[in-house]
Design a binder for these strands. Structure first.
Lengths: 187, 187, 187, 187
DNA sequence: GATGAATGAGAGTTCATTCAT
DNA sequence: CATGAATGAACTCTCATTCAT
């Protein structure tokens, strides 16, 4: 029937279910049934269950890697940092279900071979938005800026308001935190 | 050795393993083996696997419920909010492994009967540290303050510095965010 | 129902089926069905399928180990060697199905952790019935004596004659081979 | 590289893997991967997995069938028997991997359609090297001569000495056994 | 002469859970 | 207060095989 796109369809359904129910609680049978193929068909396209999740990761990792690569070449100005945050938020929004999956299945992800990779990206990101030699509080502000954006993705659903407005507000707060850190000890 | 404390020992080991490996990947066999009892023994003390995790929850929920109860009776001053954050951090530190477990197994927790409970607590917490009628950005700041503290518990391990200093810095940033929100549109 | 002897029954049925159909072609489902228990029951008694086969091995290995231990303490006379062969045949007959299984599933056995163990026993056995410094032909005779007995167990079915008579004839030929070797270059 | 010889290459690889790991544990996927073709390609050349093994058999069966045909026409002298053994060893050496496969996968081979065929050949062989009406012991000697040669192929690896010398010694012992049988009750 | 995509059947294994003792 | 023995359901994964292209 549908031909050539089965691999993609597996990824789509898998991501949806992983995000919804968690990785462990989603069985290959379930994925296969939704696609109306057999379990064995999944194994034609992916070597293991973990392989499916790894392939999904690249969709999130690639944009962030590109962002990091771009950031490494920019001057360390406040404008750059703002732009990093803006682009980071863009990446998060663009890969929302995957990011949600990672957020909600950290215990699983940690044991999956990509766990380290992901944490490294986060560490690199914090490095990019903070100057070396910042006071501890300001370093915390930078980490906080990043996690504010993560929180913005999930918890903010429970805050009333227009989604787009909320997104902007989240970015504003994050930028603000980084600005405070950038200018150093307030004064 | 000590007798009659098996129930407690089950909880301890279960929490340790749940936090380390995740709920789904931790089997009752594993818990039983660590305790050098049989699986059936676990069933003497807990009706189901989920029951174990529910019992663990109360250790985290109770302190936070107490905190909420206390906060509800205080005046809505900035000082109160600062104290709320301080006590919240205290609760987090005091129930570190459990909190880590909840953080890293959200997908699982959501499906467990306590899932809702926990999210409600979070929503209540944000309500307590923000005035009604705040601008969206300021509401974000309050949410951000809470998540800064969560991030502080886990991600801050990757930031260099004395743990105690880091904890204080985290609290300072959180308090700062709430202060900004409290004073409303900056000026 | 039948209690306490399930482990033994598993071993019995497994050995029977392994010998009949081979290790790989015998599924745990089949074993379980014959015993009228579930597959999971097998796993209560044995950690893996391989574990079943390992446990079976000990029934063959132990008598042979005892034989080796006994032989090591005897003088290297012809009489001793004859007695070794006699006892070896006894061991073979006593563990007939297991031995047949090993003989017919060598490819499998080799990959199973006990493969080496078994080969070592054979090498030790040949050492015990030959003097050091024998001519090559005589060393071959000793190996041949051993394999004659193996052949005697299986292939001799296709030779007509009373089983007991055949067994004796096999032993006689084996003893003869070892005697020739013992006396060295014929003369 | 060379084209049109795929069928042969499949046989070569299959035999190698079957001998090394056993028939059941060797999957068509593995064979295909080694040849860098798809599994489906194997099905172009062979109708089933069993078909591959059957095709391999003929390489061993044919020389032995020829040997049998030749032997049937010879006078029943001792010299003929010696020559049979010599040629038999030659056939074994010439089809070493296949013979090893048969030896180590008897359980499997027995269920494969060629199982009977092979056993029949063995029985015919023993008939050829023994006179009708021999004493039981002497019949055993003849069987033993054959199995000495089999043992010589595999177990003799564990005996030190030059391979060619060992081969000769094996033949010598086999011939000796048949000679003893030929001359009947020793005297 | 071969591939890409898929299937159906079944494998070994693990799990939470039960219950008589 | 706990064990020994077992179950039923599910799991991930592999296999030989098929067939349209």
């Amino acid at each position: 029937m549908a031909r050539g796109n089965t691999r993609q369809r597996i990824q789509d359904v898998a991501l949806e279910l992983f995000a919804e129910q968690g990785y462990e609680k989603t069985s290959l049978r379930e994925i296969a049934e939704r696609l109306d193929v057999t379990k064995a068909a999944l194994y034609y396209h992916f070597k293991t269950k973990e392989d499916i999740v790894i392939s999904l990761f690249q969709d999130l990792t690639r944009p962030i890697d590109e962002l990091i690569a771009w950031a490494e070449e920019q001057p360390h100005t406040l404008e750059t940092k703002q732009e990093i945050l803006r682009r980071y938020q863009e990446a998060l929004v663009g890969a929302y279900p995957l990011f949600r999956f990672m957020q909600e299945n950290q215990a699983t992800v940690r044991e999956l071979s990509i766990g380290e990779t992901f944490k490294e990206r986060m560490i690199t990101m914090t490095r990019l938005i903070q100057e070396p030699g910042l006071a501890l509080t300001d370093r915390v502000r930078c980490v906080s800026a990043l996690f504010t954006m993560h929180a913005g993705m999930f918890f903010m659903q429970h805050v009333e308001g227009d989604p787009e407005d909320k997104r902007e507000a989240v970015l504003e707060v994050a930028v603000d935190l980084v600005s405070q850190a950038h200018h150093g000890p307030r004064g």
